[in-house]
């Protein structure tokens, strides 16, 4: 009888312990969703840190970051996974959302790992975009070309780094 009671107590205690542990860990974990139109890089995966380039300046996101919204600018997003592995991914544009439950969504229009960037092709694209910028007739074409130049510049920078 006493044994059974003790057993019951122990299982109850274990259950409480487990629940506590799960609660505590979810608060300082950061679930990252990193997706682009062409590929999903992370789907609700817990990571250590994310560095993102945004129009309001580049910043790093750690767990319990203050909730924020930002717009991605062309550049390299660095994801540091829990085991310390660094992944560098080039993004063209998109959004970053940090929610109050520490979940992070990075949505890019297009994204590719930095390793798969080709420097010479990027140089070519840069010079093409620059000539387009110089020959742009109206405001809209000019703005589009300026964006193309910015993206190409960043790709060259990312590929040569």
């Amino acid at each position: 009888m006493a044994l059974a009671f003790r057993n019951m107590l122990r299982t109850a205690a274990r259950r409480i312990q487990v629940r506590n542990y799960a609660d505590a860990s979810s608060a300082d974990e950061m679930a990252l969703t990193f997706a682009a139109g062409n590929k999903v890089f992370y789907d609700k995966k817990v990571v250590k840190q994310i560095d993102v380039p945004s129009f309001s300046g580049s910043f790093g996101i750690l767990p319990k970051h203050v909730p924020t919204l930002a717009v991605l600018r062309p550049g390299v997003v660095t994801v540091i996974e829990n085991d310390g592995k660094q992944t560098k991914i080039f993004v063209s544009s998109g959004t970053i959302t940090v929610n109050d439950d520490s979940s992070v969504q990075v949505l890019a229009e297009e994204a590719h790992p930095v390793e798969s960037l080709d420097r010479s092709a990027a140089q070519e694209a840069l010079s093409k975009a620059q000539s387009e910028l110089n020959s742009a007739a109206n405001e809209k074409a000019k703005a589009e070309a300026a964006i193309a130049v910015e993206v190409a510049e960043e790709i060259v920078k990312a590929a040569s780094a």
Binding site: S56, L69, S93, T95
Partner: peptide, 26 residues
Amino acid sequence: KLAIYDSLDSDVLQSYMEFSLASMVF
């Protein structure tokens, strides 16, 4: 609950919403 989101101005919000509209449509 928008107030808890840090460093927002209407420019950021506008670009953010335009992009998120495109991704939702996508």
